[in-house]
């Protein structure tokens, strides 16, 4: 019951906490043309661990915003306007903090949990792996 496969069906978090699970889910998302949502989710986790005193952290915040938030891609289209505005203002004022992407990550995670994750568990990629 605690095999990786059993864990993957418990939650999206369990799937993404397992290297094989995260890799297989990304293959699935690439085919669905929405791998950016997963990359953004991991980027938010990585950003939260970064040292705010390090100059690179502001550059990463700008990179996340430019690559995922302000574009018309799968992430930019799914985020609420207020969430995008909040991040944009923080980046423009160079007032970054570790939690600045939390709300955006939650919105994208909820979207993945309700859509891509459910579809993945019915997908041929997953069933073949099982």
């Amino acid at each position: 019951p605690d095999s990786p496969l059993a864990r993957w069906t418990k939650s999206l978090h369990s799937l993404l906490g397992d290297q094989d699970g995260a890799r297989l889910f990304r293959v699935f998302l690439e085919r669905e043309r929405c791998a950016d949502a997963l990359d953004f989710w991991f980027a938010c986790n990585g950003f939260r661990q970064m040292d705010l005193k390090d100059g690179k952290t502001l550059r990463v915040a700008k990179a996340i915003y430019k690559r995922y938030v302000e574009t018309d891609g799968v992430v930019g289209r799914r985020l609420k306007p207020a969430t995008k505005t909040f991040i944009r203002d923080n980046v423009k004022r160079q007032q970054i903090d570790s939690a600045m992407f939390d709300q955006a990550q939650t919105e994208i995670q909820t979207s993945m949990e309700e859509n891509a994750y459910q579809t993945f568990l019915q997908s041929d990629i997953y069933l073949e792996y099982v």
Binding site: D18, F47, K56, V60, A63
Partner: peptide
């Protein structure tokens, strides 16, 4: 100096699950 793409890639991979 790391490019923004390099920094972003490092940020993403730093958060991915490691080999068991």
């Amino acid at each position: 100096l790391d490019s923004e793409d390099d920094l972003l890639l490092k940020c993403i991979t730093s958060a991915m699950p490691k080999q068991k």
